[in-house]
Amino acid sequence: MLTGSIVALVTPMDETGEIDFIALKELVEFHIKSKTAAIVAMGTTGESATVSVDDHVKVVERIISFAAGRIPVIAGNGANSTSEAIALSKLFTNSGIVAGLNVTPYYNKPTQEGLYQHFKAIAESSELPQILYNVPGRTAVDMLPETVARLAEIPNIIGIKEATGDLERLAHLKAILPADFALYSGDDETGCDFMLQGGHGVISVTTNVAPAEMATMCEFALNGEKEKAKAIDSQLLPVHTNLFLEANPIPVKWACAELGLIPTPKLRLPLTTLSEQYHQSVRDALIEAKLLP
């Protein structure tokens, strides 16, 4: 089981919107040196919803190549079409990734039975381990713990990224899931408490800009060293909150560019760069967290 700080990696782009593979390689090296536990390539923070399938696959393949076995790579392979998610899952089977990350289908609002059948079909389409991803604030559908428990019976469904920010939900999941089912927070603001209460890690936006700090915080939290973990988490709190002033990944790409981690904060439409009114707020958060002088 992967544990600790897992980065939901941004996808750097040049001013024309093309993938910047030079910057991408540098990001992979940055996270390896910073002791990030794993990389999620082409998750929703990586703009999977707006890139072509061809670019999606290229980014994952390049990250696997750049990582060269030094850091585990998870690939986003979710979609609101079951057939598209299955196609991505098959493409990534035997690619070198350790798992696929599957967001709940967005916009079409399936029932709990629909969610079960969707993820069951993906899991049965290949032997690739699959991590579920529940983020109702973005998808308009909430996968309930009882549905997760049904899916956990499928051998290659190995975990969930739970992004409700509801710690009572974690307690419910822990009570009904096998002990070896991985529980990851998808909410940076509550991620520390999530691990202190028995979660296994956080798939994090903040880790893009503070990988070393997040790695250390996660290590303390997983070891039950509450005071040390909370001290780092408190330092990072302005970042946790201000990276969501506009829709993710708009603020985090701007912050990455401000820190010199990527050349530009460019995104693909319909996403646009961070509104000027929020520039100082994000900059101040980076300063307060001691990420900028």
Rank of each mutant, 00 (worst) to 15 (best):
M1L: 12
L2F: 14
G4L: 03
G4F: 02
V7T: 05
V7A: 04
A8L: 07
A8F: 04
L9H: 14
V10K: 07
V10T: 13
E15H: 15
T16Y: 11
G17A: 10
D20N: 11
F21L: 13
I22W: 09
I22E: 14
L24W: 08
V28Y: 06
H31C: 03
S34V: 08
A38R: 00
G43A: 01
G43L: 04
A49E: 11
S52E: 09
V53N: 14
D54P: 12
H56N: 11
V60M: 00
E61A: 08
I63G: 01
S65Q: 14
A68C: 08
A68N: 09
G69K: 02
R70V: 02
I71G: 00
V73W: 00
G76E: 04
N77G: 13
N77I: 15
G78Y: 06
A79C: 13
N80R: 14
S81A: 15
E84M: 11
A85Y: 05
L88S: 07
S89A: 15
L91C: 15
T93M: 15
V98A: 05
G100K: 15
G100E: 07
L101V: 08
T104F: 08
P105A: 12
Y106R: 09
Y107P: 12
P110M: 09
T111K: 06
T111Q: 08
T111Y: 09
Q112G: 07
G114K: 05
L115Q: 10
Q117C: 13
E124G: 12
S125K: 05
Y133K: 03
Y133T: 04
N134T: 01
P136H: 01
G137M: 02
A140L: 08
D142S: 06
L144A: 11
P145C: 06
E146Y: 04
V148H: 00
A149S: 11
A152H: 05
E153T: 15
I154F: 03
N156Y: 09
I158Q: 05
G159N: 00
K161D: 02
K161H: 05
T164F: 02
E168Q: 15
L170F: 02
A171T: 09
K174M: 06
K174L: 12
K174N: 13
A175N: 11
A175F: 08
L177P: 03
D180T: 08
F181I: 12
F181T: 04
A182V: 14
Y184G: 02
F194K: 01
M195E: 05
G198Y: 02
G198D: 05
G199A: 02
H200P: 03
H200Q: 11
S204H: 07
V205D: 00
T207H: 06
V209Q: 04
V209P: 07
A212M: 11
E213C: 13
M214P: 11
F220A: 10
A221Q: 07
L222G: 03
G224A: 10
G224M: 14
K228G: 09
A229P: 11
A231L: 10
A231N: 13
D233K: 06
S234N: 12
L236D: 01
H240V: 08
L245Y: 13
L245Q: 07
E246V: 10
I250N: 03
P251V: 02
W254I: 06
A257L: 06
E258R: 09
L259Y: 03
G260P: 07
I262K: 00
P265E: 03
K266T: 12
K266W: 12
L267E: 06
L269E: 05
L271Q: 04
T272Y: 10
S275V: 14
R283L: 12
R283W: 13
I287N: 13
E288K: 15
A289L: 07
K290P: 10
